[in-house]
Design a protein around this nucleic acid. Structure first.
Lengths: 194, 194
DNA sequence: CATTCAAGTCAACAGGTGTTGACTAGGATG
DNA sequence: CATCCTAGTCAACACCTGTTGACTTGAATG
């Protein structure tokens, strides 16, 4: 039977737990420094572990990134949202999503130089926005265009706020940012062209 | 007196010319691969030159990047543009600007991991859009917000089109793209909040 | 022709990288 | 107690990086 706190020297010697500690440390580094500037030795150091253990658990640096960038796409219930408020709900959702953890920042920073990360970013937005656009526009091609345009504004906001850190964007509160951006998303997804 | 074509073995042995060749090769690499993945040896190879010569001319890799990312900010005459067409003129200007050479792509890719490049990107947009916003909004703080929001859409477009290569954005022609984005810029710079 | 000075090359350095394989703890099980 | 398997460490590998200093080339000048 397993003892309760059998006076562990420093930390429990549990496989899955350290694996998760490594994964989170990697996510933070990738989010802050991007793919190439993040080193296995740094991640190992942050997790209090030998670099070889990182390799043992994840196989290679790209695989470590893939694991660190895993994302569960939680979209809000949009069926019950009135069509004219879709832009607002989406703007608020994405803002919260980008700030609740640093997975998306990690993917974005890495995507600038890593084509796998770029592909993952495309997939994320295809899964999140395409269904919404398809429900509003019957034409598939037009729906894809509208979803991508909405993505361009969401990503532009994320880029200027979290990566390039434009002061004027960083200083805006959630409500202000939503007030500015929601109408843009609304028009891209459901509006006319002007 | 200088001979005209004195049967050069391969290329003229001119300092400034090779320096410029190196600078352009570096710009291309930085635009394609970002800062860290670009190596001095690659740039030297592209320019048909020894790596040591790159160092001799530019001093260090960051200084090489700074030289490669030099940009002359050519803004169109905006004084004679009717206020209600500002968005359209700007959208078209930026689209052309991003595609006429790869300097901005180089800065954008590098900016994801390099804080100097991020600062340069902030400066570029401060110089380009702030004056426009200031002419339309008397309040300096509001002008800065409006300029930054316009920047977020321009950069979001550039990111999805040139870096992440969202198919739906890549496939759009200039006119279509302008038709979609111009109203957004117009509203950010000169419109109400909704 | 001899000199000179810029243009350019060569070979090496010191340090950091991802990755590997052999080794060592350490707690549960027989 | 002996065994066994997982968790973890150690030391090294091969390679690539930015950067340096000594050297060579080559064309113009005196």
């Amino acid at each position: 039977m397993a003892e309760v706190d059998p006076q562990m020297p420093d930390r429990a010697r549990s496989g899955p737990a350290t694996r998760e500690r490594i994964r989170l440390a990697a996510r933070e580094r990738f989010a802050r420094d991007g793919f190439e500037r993040t080193t296995i030795r740094q991640v190992a150091g942050d997790a209090g572990v030998d670099p070889a253990l990182v390799m043992r658990y994840f196989g290679s640096k790209p695989q470590l990134f893939a694991a660190a960038a895993e994302l569960d796409i939680r979209m809000p219930r949009l069926a019950e949202v009135p069509r004219e408020h879709l832009g607002e709900v989406l703007a608020r959702h994405f803002l919260h999503r980008w700030e609740s953890d640093d997975t998306l920042q990690a993917i974005l920073r890495a995507a600038a130089t890593n084509s796998e990360a770029a592909e993952r970013m495309r997939d994320v937005f295809a899964e999140q926005l395409l269904p919404v656009a398809r429900e509003l526009a019957t034409d598939h091609r037009e729906a894809a265009t509208r979803a991508a345009l909405a993505a361009s504004q969401v990503l532009g906001m994320a880029l200027t706020r979290y990566v390039l850190r434009f002061p004027a964007v960083v200083e805006l509160g959630h409500d202000e940012l939503v007030a500015w951006i929601a109408p843009t998303l609304q028009r891209y997804l459901a509006g006319d062209r002007d």
